[in-house]
């Protein structure tokens, strides 16, 4: 595997919504290639019959009753907003998509 190209990094950065300047991209791409190469060693062990582990503790069925708890209140809710308008979060124009 591995050999993460500069283009790969640019694509992944796009997926991760991080705008990287060219110089930044150059620097990170080199480091990431090395890291990806190294983490790829996980392929050496763990055959198909080993189950994957997503949670360290084997808990199941943790739920809460359907009971209303107090909400924050709108002042608190929008208090940290970079911009708010009419008790709502003001965000820049959204590209075409519903």
């Amino acid at each position: 595997m591995s050999n993460l190209s500069r283009e790969d990094v640019a694509h992944v950065a796009m997926l991760a919504r991080i705008h990287l300047e060219d110089a930044e991209l150059d620097r990170l791409a080199g480091q990431l290639d090395q890291i990806v190469d190294w983490v790829g060693q996980v392929a050496e062990v763990a055959s198909a019959d080993v189950p994957p582990m997503s949670h360290p503790m084997p808990l199941t069925n943790v739920t809460r009753p359907d009971e209303v708890r107090p909400s924050l209140g709108v002042e608190q809710a929008v208090a940290n907003a970079p911009q708010a308008e009419d008790d709502r979060f003001a965000v820049p124009r959204i590209l075409d998509e519903e």
Partner: peptide, 27 residues
């Protein structure tokens, strides 16, 4: 039509004033 949201205890009533049914979880 549950009383509360999927992952937090905020109420789910339709037509409430904006952001009045929010908490750290659903924000």
């Amino acid at each position: 039509g549950t009383r509360t949201k999927m992952f937090c205890g905020c109420a789910t009533g339709f037509g409430a004033d904006p952001n009045t049914q929010t908490c750290p979880v659903c924000l």
